[in-house]
Design a protein around this nucleic acid. Sequence first.
DNA 1: TTCCAGGTCA
DNA 2: TGACCCGGAA
Length: 220
Amino acid sequence: MNTTDTLKQFYLAMMDRYGPQGWWPAGSPFEMIVGAMLTQNTAWVNVEKALLRLKAADALTARAIDAMPIERLAELIRPAGYFNVKARRLKNLVRWMVDAYDGDVERMKAAQPASMRRQLLDVNGVGPETADSMMLYALGHPRFVVDAYTYRIAVRHGLICPPTEYDDLQAVFEDHLPSDAAMFNEYHALLVRVGKEHCKPHARCEGCPLEKFPHDAEAR
DNA sequence: TTCCAGGTCA
DNA sequence: TGACCCGGAA
């Protein structure tokens, strides 16, 4: 089976088992941008706690965060972990948003996607995964988000051999699937589900939607 | 109570 | 290659 068919079969098998994951989360695009920063190395449940605290403080706008003392911001996002690092990074991000786009996500959506990704990567604290999460989930651009789950699943199923760079793994998906933001969104969400429930550091293949495809639970 | 999971930067 | 950190699982 070629890569295109393999990726399609993976998608169908996961969708058949789990159904749509209902990401395109509620909340504003700006909330998604903040969430993308806060979820670095962090479970989403903890990110939600931090987002709720920001919301309660009426601080879910670029301008509000830009104007806030960094100590206050760190305290608000404490549940998301790495709060000092993330407060600094969030500050960098909103500073750039206010400077370059008047703090307006709609203006960011109107920018050329390739240029936007480069600008995001230029913000200290935004790496490739965070940039692509923002591109896909906040701005609606078809970028395939690669994370630790994606990497583990791809290695164990022989899609890539370690070490593989972020961009190379991303290309495996983007070059073999139609460029569709809604599908990329769903695909990533399904991979995360598989990663959490089965494709953990110590694989639990029993009952995995991808169990029927060739795999090696040892491979990392 | 310890262990673990997990992006980015210097 | 280590530093940054929480909350939930073991």
